[in-house]
Simulated scan of single mutants.
Amino acid sequence: MIAAVKDLMHDYLRKAREAMLWKLDGLGEYDIRQPLTPTGTNLLGLVKHLSIVEAWYFGRTFDRPFPEELPWWDDDAEPNADAWVTADESRADIVDLYRRVWAHADATIEALPLEAPGVVPWWRKPDTTLHGILVHVIAETNRHAGHADILREQLDGAVGMSAGNSNLPSEDVGWWEAYRARVEEAARAAAV
């Protein structure tokens, strides 16, 4: 039973990871780096950020540090250094890093039981378990996948979990235009 729970959670994490990378497919360098919110949120920066998230939570938390230097998490790194990608960092560099972090995280997940203890020093209650970290990272990855979904829709209209799964009703452009108009009308009416 516990092994099945761990496998299910790991599967949810894997699907969220793949959704994050799909958000980059077919877009040019500018589009994946372009800040699309006032706080600079961008697609490739979200992937870079999630690399740090997994490297830390599945590495240092369980005294299984990710073997590569990731300067964005150093104490002297500039704020939000993990949330955007410099011109010198390529898409391939960031995607390959994310995949290497996955392999490291997957090894931790596979090696440890859900009850394995870990410590996250900056949490209010720093003592945790692999189960707690899996829940946290699944939530964080899906949260950022939601951000990525909205950013990608702004760029070219692509939405969903993968190229074949929009996770939306299958309607034509006219239906969506009418639907959006109804939502806008309701919002304006409520604001009066």
Rank of each mutant, 00 (worst) to 15 (best):
G164D: 09
E177D: 09
V85Y: 03
R182P: 03
E115Y: 06
D11A: 12
D149P: 00
I150T: 15
L24Y: 02
A116R: 13
A111V: 03
V5Y: 04
V137D: 05
W123L: 15
G40S: 11
G164Y: 04
P65E: 01
I138A: 00
D93T: 06
D127S: 13
R143D: 05
D31G: 03
P79A: 12
R124L: 09
W73E: 09
T86P: 13
W22V: 14
A186F: 07
F62K: 14
G40F: 06
L24T: 03
R100I: 10
D96F: 03
L112T: 02
P65H: 01
L27Q: 03
A139S: 12
F58E: 03
D88M: 09
W72A: 13
V137C: 06
A189E: 12
T129G: 09
H147M: 08
E110L: 12
R188Y: 01
W22Q: 09
A163C: 02
T128Y: 04
P71R: 12
L97H: 07
A87R: 07
L151H: 06
F66M: 04
R182D: 15
G45R: 10
D63Y: 13
V137R: 11
I138S: 01
L46S: 13
V95I: 01
K23L: 01
A181F: 00
G146P: 14
W123V: 06
P117C: 05
A187M: 06
G160S: 06
A111N: 06
A92W: 05
F62E: 09
N42H: 04
Y179P: 00
V95Q: 04
A139I: 04
P35W: 10
P113A: 07
N80T: 11
L8G: 15
G160Q: 02
V85W: 02
H10T: 14
R14I: 15
D96K: 08
R124I: 12
T39E: 14
P67D: 05
V95L: 05
D127V: 14
L97E: 06
E110P: 05
E18S: 14
A4V: 10
N80D: 10
N80V: 09
K125S: 13
W22K: 13
Y30S: 15
A19N: 15
V119Y: 06
A190V: 04
D149R: 12
D88H: 07
R91H: 02
P169N: 07
E68A: 07
E78H: 08
A186V: 08
D149G: 07
A178C: 01
A148W: 04
F66K: 09
T128K: 04
V85M: 11
A19G: 15
A191N: 11
S166M: 01
V159S: 14
E177S: 01
A145Y: 12
I94Q: 04
A163Q: 08
Q34S: 00
E140T: 05
A107Y: 05
N42F: 01
R64T: 05
A139G: 08
A186Y: 07
A148S: 15
A145D: 15
